[in-house]
Structures are given as C-alpha cells and as structure tokens.
Amino acid sequence: MTGEPRIPCGHAAQPASAHANDAIAHIADKASLRATLKAARRALDPLEKARLDALIGARVLAWWRGHTAAGAAALLGVYWPLRGEPDLQPLYAELARAGVPLALPLVVAPDCALAFVEWVPGEAMVSDRMGVAVPAVQRVVDRPGVLLVPCLGFTEERFRLGYGGGYYDRTLEKEPRPVTVGIAYAGDQVAFAAGPHDVALDCVITEQ
C-alpha cells in the first residue's frame, strides 16, 4: 500500500535529527543505508537515547489512547528492543497495568510470516532461534490488530527499512492488514526506492 495513511497520526516523520549523518538521506543502496544507520545508533549517547526513548514512548501512549477511543482492537503487538532500537519497555509496563493485552512477535521459520505470543511484562523470558527474547511459556494468539514495528530506517512515504529478513513484509501480506505504527528516531529518515514486496506503514512515530 502506497497511498495516504489509513489512520490519522499526529506525529509524522520529521527531518533527520543530529544523531544521524546528513549524508544518510543521499545513500540509495539499502546495504549501505543499513550500515550507516547502525553506526549512527551505536554512536548515540546512552543518556540521550534514554531521553529520546521516553519521548517516543509518551507519543505512542498518546496515539494509542486516541486510537482506542475510536474503538480499536484491544490486542497490541509490541517488540523487544534489539540493536539500539527505541526501548519502549516502560510504556509496555504502563499499558499492561492499564489492562492492555500485549503480544510479542515470534519467528517460527525462515521466509515465513511472524507468529505472535501473549506477553506480560516481567514474566520469564528465553531466547529464540534468532537470539530474541520471547516468553518462556508461549501462548500463541491471533495476529494483533495493531502492530508497533521497529524501523532501522524509514522514508517520507512510510516505507520501512529493516534488517533484510523480510519477516514483517510477509506478515503484512495477508489481508486484512493490521494497523502498523513504525517506531524510529527522527534521524532514521532516509530515501530509497521501494521494492515490489515493501509495504508502507500507516504512520511513523518518532521523538519529534
């Protein structure tokens, strides 16, 4: 989908922030983009990262409250932060306390769509085959109606740059599509030509 967002989002993508190199926006090759974005995240000061993560969490919470007020699905798909991704675990804990059921993605096999398992913050976790934390007791649930999708990079048109595995693209192929909210830092905005299998996100929320 490459048209207008299916849902309103008050926190649209913004120009690159100071933590990323201005040259990122001019790199067309995805492999080079990934390498540059990863380096920018590694260089991000931990205190500054924590500040940005808190801002993103607050904006996601405000978006979620507005979305659920409109009668959205209750189950929210979240992600476990990897490789310098925005860490929204304080947000997850707040949502869980408010009674919002959460689900984490689960890689079941290469080249397959993600499965989702129920998750309660604080429960015992183990590492899956990809080294990603998942609940020790896996309670499989249907695909959530709303997904928070971590982005290594994203374009003005809301196409996501991930790590190249294609798991989220395959997950979003099946209709009806869930509402997809990209999570990224403002400095992760880049430019690249979308491929035939790329699926545009409904909106992207950053610290800006």
Results as ranks from 00 to 15, higher is better:
Glu207Val: 11
Gly187Trp: 12
Tyr185Gly: 12
Val204Met: 12
Gly182Met: 07
Val179Lys: 01
Val181Ala: 00
Ala193Lys: 15
Val199Cys: 15
Arg177Glu: 04
Cys203Tyr: 07
Gly182His: 03
Ile205Gln: 10
Ala200Met: 03
Gly195His: 15
Pro196Glu: 12
Val179Arg: 01
Arg177Met: 03
Asp202Ile: 11
Gln189His: 06
Val204Ser: 08
Val199Pro: 03
Ala191Ser: 13
Pro176Val: 02
Ile183Ser: 02
Val204His: 10
Val204Thr: 05
Pro176Lys: 09
Ala194Glu: 08
Asp198Thr: 07
Thr180Glu: 10
Thr180Asp: 10
Val204Asp: 12
Cys203Gly: 13
Ala191Val: 11
Gly182Arg: 01
Asp188Ile: 00
Gly187Cys: 09
Ile183Asn: 02
Val179Glu: 02
Asp202Pro: 14
Thr180Arg: 15
Thr206Met: 08
Tyr185Ser: 13
Val199Asn: 10
Ile205Trp: 09
Val190Cys: 11
Gly195Glu: 14
Thr206Tyr: 05
Val190Leu: 13
Ala186Val: 02
Pro196Leu: 11
Val181Ile: 15
Ala186Trp: 03
His197Gln: 14
Gly187Ser: 11
Val179Trp: 05
Cys203Leu: 11
Ala191Leu: 09
Asp198Ile: 07
Val179Cys: 13
Pro178Phe: 04
Cys203Ile: 08
Ala194Asn: 03
Glu207Tyr: 07
Ala193Phe: 12
Val181Gly: 00
Val204Pro: 10
Ala194His: 12
Ala200Leu: 03
Phe192Gln: 03
Ala186Leu: 02
His197Ile: 01
Tyr185Asp: 14
Ala200Arg: 07
Pro196Cys: 08
His197Met: 10
Leu201Tyr: 11
Ala191Trp: 14
Pro196Asp: 13
Gln189Lys: 08
Tyr185Val: 15
Arg177Ala: 10
Ile205Tyr: 08
Ala193Ile: 12
His197Phe: 11
Ile205Ser: 08
Ala184Met: 08
Pro176Ala: 05
Gln189Asp: 05
